[in-house]
Nucleic acid binder design. Structure first.
Length: 279
DNA sequence: CCTTCACCCTGCACGC
DNA sequence: TGCGTGCAGGGTGAAG
């Protein structure tokens, strides 16, 4: 599931393979992605090049040589960007293929089609990016800001840190891991977060994201690097997907329940729910 | 305003 | 072996 580390890994893998190469062809399947593809069918980017790729949260923005169009990319649940030789046959679920002058291709592959690629107007507001919150690896995201953002909110702390309008890039895997290493129950009301807990949680969010980027992301099922290889952070996950297994710290069985519509693993002993705020 | 929830989709694990 | 069922989850928009 592409979260911030997987999107960042994708960015780093793709950019050197496409930078400043002229786009000679754009092919797309007839399957609709989460957003319709009309903006690309015009082939407006033909004979232009991708010059740089930025990341904002789980979005990638490809800056092009076109006078006013860039590309906005979201990998959804199961999307990946891969570099292939044009001689390699397209795979099922390859939905958009950019061909370049060096006979290489950039292919957007997405079985579940929750993601999308669309053109955006450079310099104009982009609605998908407008509401996004803090970048978790930015120094502006810290104990102080997390503490402030959690005031007055009774919602579960886990859904708060997964809310992209609060802080971007954290999905179920890294939220689960960061709450475990911080010893915080995922269902604790956000407003109960103490300043010390905000310090631990903001630190541990940064730590787990940086460690996952260093490991090339987490491959559970669909995520692959631009060269098709897997990320190996999965071996480092301590608690995600480990329901009923012993806690790596105290050996008590890990529990699992649905919080905010997402399956959530936690250790009932190491992440006990306080009786009241500050416990 | 704040929060929750159904929906989109396919592949895979599971039980019979 | 093969079928049916349920689950996985990011973002959105509607409902509460």
């Amino acid at each position: 599931m592409p979260e911030l580390p997987e999107v960042e890994t994708t960015r780093r893998g793709v950019l050197p393979n496409v930078a400043n190469l002229k786009i000679t062809d754009i092919w797309q399947s007839h399957m609709n992605l989460r957003q319709p593809l009309e903006a690309i069918t015009g082939q407006q980017l033909l004979n232009h090049a991708i010059q740089d790729i930025y990341r904002r949260g789980k979005y990638l923005i490809a800056k092009t040589s076109h006078p006013h169009l860039d590309l906005l990319i979201h990998l959804g649940m199961s999307g990946s960007l891969r570099i292939n030789s044009e001689a390699e046959p397209r795979k099922k679920h390859d939905h958009i293929v950019f061909s370049f002058t060096n006979n290489q291709q950039l292919r957007y592959h997405d079985p579940r089609r929750f993601g999308f690629i669309k053109t955006i107007n450079r310099g104009q507001p982009v609605k998908e990016l407008a509401h996004l919150g803090f970048e978790p690896l930015d120094e502006n995201f810290n104990a102080q800001t997390l503490f402030k953002l959690s005031r007055g909110r009774k919602r579960a702390i886990k859904t708060l840190i997964m809310d992209q309008s609060i802080v971007v890039g954290i999905g179920n895997i890294y939220a689960t891991e960061a709450l475990f290493t911080s010893g915080i129950h995922p269902e604790m009301p956000a407003k109960w977060l103490s300043h010390a807990q905000a310090q631990h949680l903001s630190d541990n969010i940064k730590k787990v994201l940086l460690a996952a980027i260093a490991a090339g992301g987490t491959t559970l099922r669909d995520f692959v690097h631009s060269d098709g290889t897997a990320g190996y952070f999965k071996q480092t996950l301590q608690i995600y997907g480990q329901a009923n297994q012993p806690c790596p710290i105290c050996s008590q069985p890990i529990e699992s329940k649905v919080i905010g519509g997402r399956q959530s693993c936690y250790c009932p002993y190491c992440q006990s729910m306080p009786k009241k705020p500050g416990d």
